[in-house]
Design a protein around this nucleic acid. Structure first.
Length: 269
DNA sequence: AACAAGTGCAACCGCAGCTGT
DNA sequence: CACAGCTGCGGTTGCACTTGT
């Protein structure tokens, strides 16, 4: 739409948040609730743009955020969900109670992508002997660039290996109930079997556009798949949802119409 | 001990979808 | 229908801290 950036930055603070700013933001949100990020800074007495406030709250100040290391279970789930969903960090985070999309994204970029790359390249070591120079080569900036190339699968060296991991890496889209539905529908449409069958659609996955009032209230199957974890207390979620169960949910839904079962099987193989 | 390189993570940026007018 | 504003997302950057030489 060509609109100007949300924050013109004139007279606004940037960079790390101070404890005082955190307190102001927490107090305001506790009193007035989340939302209206555009006007929030002014009302809360913060010299920050709304975007920055939202990010700070979502990624750091929210009371239900779980701090600390990613557990092996979470680690495993992230890998599996990423193989299913691609870089849909918010969707993956939604299945990991207390974890933020930013945290998962960082964890993936700094730990998992490297580990998976390493694992997969170990399988074809013979092709990797002429790889990049070891520790100490290149600048930090070049390393970052390399990281990007690796994660994008651009690196010609590792591209093939990356392709083995990356089952489906769709273009990034905003995640909301309707887009989740669209994504699943697009998966169905793009499945070879669907092409053969022509008119095969998942009856329970009609586009649900409910204006963002909760997850798919018009769509019972999606309710089961993508529930709003924010509506549950972290404890109750932790008590009732095992991480493996979450993955099972996806698997069962995908298998429900038998459309993409081969796709899931390929992930599990 | 000093420096360079590597790592982790908070924060920023730009884009795109949704909604109201 | 077109447009503008708001919101949320993924990608990227910057920097403090850690590790290696």
């Amino acid at each position: 739409m060509g609109r100007a950036p949300c924050c013109s930055k004139v007279g606004l603070y940037r960079g790390a948040w101070t404890a005082k700013e955190d307190t102001l933001l927490i107090n305001y949100i506790q009193a007035h609730g989340e939302g209206h990020w555009r006007s929030l800074p002014k009302k809360a007495g913060l010299l920050r743009c709304g975007k920055s406030c939202r990010l700070r709250w979502m990624n750091y100040l929210r009371p239900d955020i779980k701090r600390g290391n990613i557990t092996p279970d979470e680690d495993d789930l992230i890998i599996r969900l990423h193989s299913l969903l691609g870089n849909r960090w918010s969707l993956i985070a939604g299945r990991l109670p207390g974890r933020t999309d930013n945290e998962i994204k960082n964890y993936w970029n700094s730990h998992l992508s490297k580990r998976l790359m390493k694992n997969s390249t170990e399988g074809n070591k013979s092709q990797c002997m002429g790889g990049s120079a070891g520790k100490g080569s290149g600048t930090k900036a070049s390393n970052k660039r390399k990281q990007k190339e690796d994660s994008d699968g651009i690196s010609s060296q590792n591209g093939e290996a990356a392709a083995k991991i990356k089952i489906y890496l769709p273009k990034a889209t905003k995640v909301c109930p309707s887009s989740v539905t669209k994504y699943i529908q697009s998966m169905i449409r793009s499945s070879p079997r669907n092409v053969e069958d022509g008119d095969h659609t998942m009856s329970g996955l009609k586009t649900a556009n409910n204006g963002g009032q909760g997850w798919g209230s018009n769509n019972e199957e999606l309710d089961g798949l993508v529930c709003d974890l924010n509506s549950s207390s972290p404890n109750s979620v932790q008590n009732h949802i095992m991480l493996d169960d979450i993955y099972e949910e996806y698997q069962q839904l995908l298998k429900a119409d038998g459309i993409v079962d081969s796709f899931v099987d390929s992930l599990l193989a």
